[in-house]
Design a binder for these strands. Structure first.
Length: 891
RNA sequence: GCCCGCCUGGCGGAAUGGUAGACGCAGCGGACUUAAAAUCCGCAGUCCGCAAGGACAUGCCGGUUCGAGUCCGGCGGCGGGCACCA
């Protein structure tokens, strides 16, 4: 036993050896950081102070943190602590994405008010996060359900409204019949609600829309400047925005239908107009409705298209189906007539809801034409093909070639033919060249209680009126009834009844609340001045934004990140921000996975219900704890409650401590890949924390004081003693390599370098051969202090504990110390090991002094017995020497 | 279908075109212990060989190079994203 720090914990049996008592140490250092306000920064940093804003995606307060959070926040904390040590003023805040449906479900199921449920969850999760020892500035904390936050959000929405970025629009929406709410296109996955999993229906509703499409060109182009974003995220956003160049072409109907004289299509291939064989419209298109009104069979087909959900389309292998309406259109160039079909593969939401079919050069059109016996006329000739014989069989020709069978376009390549066709269309007023976008405007109306009220008032006389500034925030009523289905705000007896701010007559408050993605689209800006009575204070956001390093899951690659990028632009347009891009650097972490286990009857088992053993063949086997029921070890997959392959971070931290959990999660693999959580891996990490403590604790008695050590290391003896130089080289190599690894997010490599360093320190405890004990003592102090400081971003508590043992007279916290600097001069060794190759194959290694001449190196290499055997007396034609690396002899 | 990414021991992974497998996990042998745990020392890609040493090895086939896990071309497999997008 050493001292009070290592005294045994009464609640757990302690081994006899002195051990690091994390249960006592971790809260103590958390308190010390808090007392010294180590992680606080001003809203407006002093001039010239280098700022660094580290942000992890804030959590939804479900009640408990999970391993994904532990990984996310550990990664962010490593960056924050490292950047702080590098002299940056680091802002590292935390908050809560606190609106959303689960709170309402809890209210319905348990009768707990959403606010009460949410704030209780937040309190618990805050405690859990605090136990992780994260270097967060808790004074900036807020929840999006705080009226102080959503009230400012309402101000933003009103500013956006004045800027023409908020509209009320009657539109087809995705209706989730389980959640009883509208979903954005982005929130519909395979035709099902992203949260409820229910089959989504099409419904026409008046709803609030944010005009994200106004920024579509900019959101796309600016991706090019995001050089610290993962390429794949940029690609996903680019695909989502979906820019395509083409033409809108108007086809005159041979006979007007219900007073309509023409149909407009969008095409990216106006060069293939001469290869047209039909025109097709979506089932929701007015022409389809017109056909349905005339013909029961057409009506039947339209109904079939509507009912055909995505899942069925998948089952049917996306079979192309159509119905000939009997309507005819005239070709803008030739005047020839073509049939108008209703086709199940034409989407009303994309382009104009109508296409012209050119089967020879579009696979989907070709499949359709073959099925219904429509003509196939090739109009683009592949290079080297013969115009007289070229024909399209089962495969459409979609590459570049030369236009033929195309009148005035003949002889042009695809690009030139596109231009030629558009010119001709524009000249005769039959069409225009256009850019089309896949991105839709963002419908934000949700028919729910637990969200930010959209601050408008409906007056029968004055129309939609914004809520006056003085009346903000529009607070959610607290007395709400969840017993009825639908929106509780709409049912509330009094809440929605207000006077019109314009004429004073009775009017109705908007009862829709915001999509929760709105809340998370600007929280990063609010953190800069979280208590301000405006959405953001200009000086604070100008000083801190953009976020220098944002960290979160890849699952937000499109939705959240695109919405935030839009919000930055909208906030700039309304004078709130100066920056357009909110996140200068983005890192997307992988998931945390775990083995899954099944009992004999096929039920899923939690990891803690299972015992493991190793069979005679060396294979792992498992049985149910407290019995011998066999357990099947299943796949390693993402932790999920349904598979019960979860591990509770709270239990891990209680058992091993926060540093162990952090260390393991960082050590396992590169942070952008999925990692596997294993019990043996955690145990290994725990062993290392104990080992570091033991090394420090056992060696500290041999160490000179910090002042004496500095004197020793600058004295001549330190420069000559071999063991001293070796240890110092290991120390400074560790500084260099750990620093490089942290800079590149290679945290698993940083961990490996620290293991190597610890191994080197232990090897120096009992150096073989001659050594100068005094000089080595100085090097040992330097090494141990460096070990503490280099490991601090990953294991901050242990680092403080080690530091306090090494420097008991110094009040500094490691959290406040600068990062160690590597002395490159100390890295130079006296001799190097060179690989000796003959014809590129390794035959020997030789040890040569640094600075040895090439002649002596070649001589030493050729003298090696193995090398001589490989050369076998043949003349050496070429000698290659890569200094410090390799010698290669070519015979 | 299109677009990305990946493929290295039993496992996670490391490796500026220069000794492949660092470091860890799991494993094996030994020391300490009455015993266990903890800890410490050692072994460890595969095959041949007593050994010295050799052959084969980074999904497969080829190429560039004195030298390829790394660069180039082709093929295969796995994973992810998007998708009747006109």
């Amino acid at each position: 036993m050493n001292d009070s720090i290592t005294s045994p914990d009464k609640t757990a049996p302690e081994p006899a050896a002195p051990r690091y008592n994390f249960r006592a140490a971790e809260p103590r250092w958390q308190q010390a950081w808090n007392d010294r306000a180590c992680f606080s920064v001003p809203d407006v940093p002093p001039d010239g102070a280098p700022k660094y804003y580290v942000l992890e995606m804030f959590p939804y307060p479900s009640g408990k943190i999970h391993m994904g959070h532990v990984r996310n926040y550990t990664l962010g904390d490593v960056v924050a602590r490292y950047k702080r040590a590098r002299g940056h003023l680091v802002m590292h805040p935390m908050g809560w994405d606190a609106f959303g449906l689960p709170a309402e479900n809890a209210a319905r199921e348990r009768g707990t008010h959403p606010a009460k449920w949410t704030y209780a969850n937040i309190a618990n999760m805050r405690d859990e996060l605090k136990r992780m020892g994260l270097s967060l500035e808790w004074s900036r904390e807020f929840a999006t359900c705080d009226p102080e936050y959503y009230g400012q959000q309402q101000k933003l929405l009103l500013d956006f409204w004045k800027a023409g970025l908020v509209e009320r629009r009657e539109s087809w929406v995705n209706w989730d019949p389980v959640d009883n709410t509208v979903l954005a296109n982005e929130q519909v996955i395979d035709g099902r609600g992203w949260r409820s999993g229910a089959q989504v229906e099409k419904k026409k509703l008046a709803q609030w829309v944010l005009a994200i499409t106004k920024y579509a060109p900019d959101l796309l182009e600016a991706l090019g400047g995001l050089d610290r974003w993962p390429e794949r995220v940029k690609l996903m956003q680019s695909n989502w925005i979906g820019r395509s160049e083409g033409a809108r072409v108007r086809f005159a109907l041979a006979k007007p239908v219900d007073g309509t004289a023409e149909v407009e299509v969008f095409t990216t291939r106006p060069d293939t107009l001469f290869g047209m064989s039909f025109l097709a419209v979506a089932a929701e298109h007015p022409l389809a409705a017109a056909a349905a009104a005339r013909d029961a069979k057409a009506a039947e087909f339209v109904a079939e298209c509507r009912s055909m959900g995505t899942s069925e389309a998948v089952i049917e292998q996306a079979e192309k189906k159509g119905f000939d309406t009997g309507f005819r259109v005239k070709h803008p160039f030739t005047g020839a007539e073509y049939p108008v079909w209703i086709a199940n593969f034409v989407l009303m939401e994309y382009g104009t809801g109508a296409i012209f079919g050119c089967p020879a050069h579009d696979q989907r059109d070709l499949d359709f034409a073959r099925k219904y016996g429509l003509s196939v006329t090739p109009v683009v000739l592949p290079k080297g093909a013969d115009a007289a014989t070229f024909a399209v069989a089962d495969e459409a020709f979609t590459d570049d070639g030369t236009a033929f069978n195309s009148g005035f376009l003949d002889g042009l390549d695809v690009a030139a033919a596109k231009r030629g066709a558009i010119d001709a269309l524009e000249k005769q007023g039959a069409g225009t060249g256009v850019v089309n976008w896949r991105l839709r405007d963002w419908g934000v109306s949700r028919q729910r209680y637990w969200g930010c009220p959209i601050p408008f008032i409906h007056c029968d006389d004055c129309g939609v009126q914004p809520v006056p500034d003085a009346e903000l925030p529009v607070r959610l009523p607290e007395d709400v009834d969840f017993s009825k289905p639908g929106n509780p705000l709409d049912h509330h007896p009094t809440w929605k009844h207000v006077a019109c701010p314009n004429c004073g007559k009775p009017a109705r408050r908007e009862t829709d609340t915001c999509d929760t993605f709105v809340d998370s689209s600007w929280y990063f800006a609010r953190f800069c001045s979280p208590r301000a009575d405006v959405p953001v204070t200009k000086a604070a956001v100008d000083a801190w934004l953009p976020v220098d390093q944002y960290i979160g899951g890849i699952e937000h690659a499109i939705l959240h990140l695109l919405y935030s990028r839009f919000f930055s632009r909208a906030m700039k347009a309304t004078g709130h921000l100066t920056v357009e891009e909110p996140f200068a650097g983005l890192f997307t972490q992988g998931m945390v996975q775990h083995e899954s286990y099944k009992g004999a009857d096929g039920r899923w088992l939690y990891p803690e219900e299972v015992d493991f053993s190793v069979t005679a063949e060396g294979l792992r086997s498992a049985t149910l704890k407290g019995g011998n029921e066999p357990v099947t070890i299943g796949r390693v997959e993402a932790m999920s409650k349904s598979k019960r392959n979860t591990v509770d971070p709270g239990a891990i931290i209680a058992k091993y401590g926060a540093d162990t959990a952090r260390w393991f999660i960082l050590s396992d693999n590169p942070p952008d890949r999925d990692m596997e959580w294993t019990e043996s891996g955690v145990a290994g990490a725990y062993r290392f924390t104990q080992r570091v403590f033991r090394i420090v604790d056992e060696m500290r008695a041999e160490l000179p004081s910090p002042e004496l050590a500095a004197t020793i290391l600058s004295s001549p003896v330190a420069a000559t003693d071999r063991a001293t130089k070796e240890l110092r080289r290991a120390t400074h190599r560790a500084i260099k390599s750990v620093t490089e690894a942290l800079e590149t997010f290679a945290f698993n490599v940083a961990v490996a370098r620290l293991y190597e360093f610890a191994n080197a320190i232990e090897a120096a405890r009992a150096p073989s051969g001659q050594f100068d004990a005094v000089a080595l003592g100085g090097a040992k102090r330097e090494a141990l202090e460096t070990l503490a400081r280099l490991s601090a971003p990953m294991m901050p508590h242990l680092a403080e504990e080690a530091w306090s043992l090494l420097c008991p007279d110094h009040a500094d916290l490691v959290a406040l110390l600068p990062w160690p600097e590597a002395d490159l001069a100390l890295l130079v060794a006296e001799s190097v090991t060179l690989a000796v190759q003959v014809l590129g194959k390794l035959r020997a290694t030789i040890e040569v002094p640094v600075g040895a001449s090439e002649e002596s190196i070649f001589a030493a290499a050729e003298a090696e017995e193995n090398v001589q055997r490989a050369v076998a007396g043949k003349p050496i034609r070429k000698r290659i020497h890569v200094p410090g690396r390799v010698v290669n002899l070519v015979v």
